[in-house]
Amino acid sequence: MDIQYMIEIFPRFLLVIPITILIVVLSAIFGLMLSIPVAAIRIRKIPVLSQMMGAYISFTRSTPILLQLFLFFFGLPVLLQLIGFDIMKIDAITAAVACLIVFNGAYMSEVLRPAYLAIEKGQHEAAESLGYTPFQKMKTVIIPQMAPIALPGLGNAIIHLIHDSSLVFAIGVVDIMGMATIMSGDTFGMKQVEVFLTVALIYWGISMISEQLIRLLERRKKKVLKNTGYKLKEEEAGYSV
């Protein structure tokens, strides 16, 4: 094994790490934004829309992401053509981000929904009875109590997202994984182990850093959990909420 080679190729990956991070950050932020109305529709059981969201969640969660990427990459131009935008091919990164946003919108909504439902009705009613607007109620009472419950699930979603983003090379995005396949080709497959091991270490590093960031938030969560008394319930139940 050629460790020297691994050190040599590392800087070339630095160029594409931002691509992976861009895809992850955009998908996480807009995915979370999408998941809020999706969760709200499901919680309120709005007829028709709720069933549609149910099908959407079921579909995205039970088909391989790789397949969804292909559907977006090849399917979006067709769809756009139907509504009048004539483009032969969309940018691979755009397709990848759009796909991962849609995926996370579904995935994260299933984290938010139970977190919302875990908050007692009395908390809503207390705020309502004092004349809070729905927005004031969510901001000062409900979301602060939801956050510690939802955080582990959202953290997991982001770690999964980092890993899933490695599939976007399949539609031609040159991210970390895309770069790896190029390099592996450059050396005619001679240094495959070194290349993929380097990539594995990079993904490990990114995931570790993300986990630490999430843990910073979790420390706050522990404090809130302790204050709200949920911590006690957690210990009683013997699992982590």
Partner: peptide
């Protein structure tokens, strides 16, 4: 909202805001 702001309610289950201290509970509204 207007009507609710003229009334206050004391619930059977107290329904204090769990994420707030006693003082914050009284101050918040």
């Amino acid at each position: 909202l207007d009507l609710r702001r003229k009334t206050a309610m004391v619930f059977q289950q107290y329904n204090l805001f769990k994420n707030k201290t006693v003082l914050e509970n009284v101050m918040d509204a």
